[in-house]
């Protein structure tokens, strides 16, 4: 079986959807723990970034439904076929996409600039980030898998989703402020990465029949590729926390340059992980569900 243009489009739009949703949710989480450390101007920039990502994620959700409908029907006309879109919605997308769009719309409460607005936006960020667990392999595997994937997704949003806000603030702020923000982010990211890896490992154990599925099945090989990139990304994050962040405390300007460059590399690796995940969740089924 060959890849069709629809498969490539479906993977591409799913990766964009993942990125925009995690960036919107991650931006809210970033403000949750660093708002007291950053200037008002920077806080506003992050709010606008969150709003932009939420709009992109809502648009990507709609485009994705059309692409799935188009892949099932008669080419491009299928993208506008209401009966096909209804079939897609009835097969679980109504639940997951509805949850995501509700979360993304309510994230807009962040613009209220009040405590209530911020709390509402934070809860909505959780809703949007975990919406991907309400359909797909984890949903088919049972409620424990949904819970594990939800934790995994929250970890992704806390870590990867906060990288752009960190970069936005880090490019403008002074060294001592950057040192404080980087330390706060590093402390939170350790928890986020821990939750992400732990929940991801347990989830993988439920989706594989045995360890050898990792190299004997197509699904396992995809996961192996993803884990390889995750290992490189985790190493880059460790360098940030253990090398650049302590040097920032000593007002080392070179460390700031190194940190920002490393964050850009992490963003590229994170994007690659999302593309592989989009392909993994679109093209191959886990062995335990066969």
């Amino acid at each position: 079986m060959q890849f069709s243009a629809w498969d490539v489009a479906a993977i591409g739009i799913k990766a964009i959807l993942y990125a925009a949703t995690f960036c919107a949710a991650g931006g809210v989480f970033f403000l949750l723990y660093s708002r007291s450390l950053i200037a008002l101007d920077d806080e506003r920039r992050v709010r606008w970034w969150v709003g932009l990502c939420a709009v992109v994620a809502i648009a990507a959700s709609a485009v994705r439904l059309s692409i799935i409908a188009g892949s099932m029907g008669d080419g491009f006309s299928g993208t506008l076929d209401g009966s096909m879109v209804r079939m897609v919605l009835e097969a679980g997308e109504a639940r997951a996409t509805g949850m995501r769009i509700t979360g993304l719309l309510l994230i807009g409460a962040i613009f209220l600039e009040t405590s209530c607005g911020f709390i509402a936006a934070s809860l909505s960020a959780f809703l949007a980030a975990t919406s991907f667990a309400w359909i797909g392999h984890a949903w088919a595997a049972g409620r424990w898998s949904v819970a594990l994937l939800s934790l995994h997704l929250i970890g992704v949003a806390f870590w990867l989703g906060a990288l752009v806000p960190l970069l936005l603030v880090g490019q403008r702020t002074d060294l001592s402020s950057l040192a404080r923000i980087a330390k706060r982010f590093g402390d939170i990211a350790v928890i986020g990465v821990g939750v992400l890896l732990l929940a991801g490992s347990f989830l993988l154990a439920t989706l594989l029949r045995q360890a050898s599925d990792l190299w004997n099945t197509e699904y396992g090989r995809f996961v192996g590729g993803k884990l390889l990139i995750v290992a490189v990304l985790t190493a880059a994050a460790a360098v940030n926390k253990l090398r650049f962040t302590p040097r920032l405390q000593t007002q080392d300007a070179a460390a700031a340059y190194g940190l920002l460059r490393s964050i850009r590399a992490e963003l590229l690796l994170g994007g690659l992980i999302l593309i592989v995940t989009a392909a993994l969740t679109s093209l191959v089924g886990p062995p335990a569900l066969d």
Partner: peptide, 8 residues
């Protein structure tokens, strides 16, 4: 389209 996981 599978109704449990939404996959085509």
């Amino acid at each position: 389209i599978a109704t449990d996981d939404g996959h085509v």
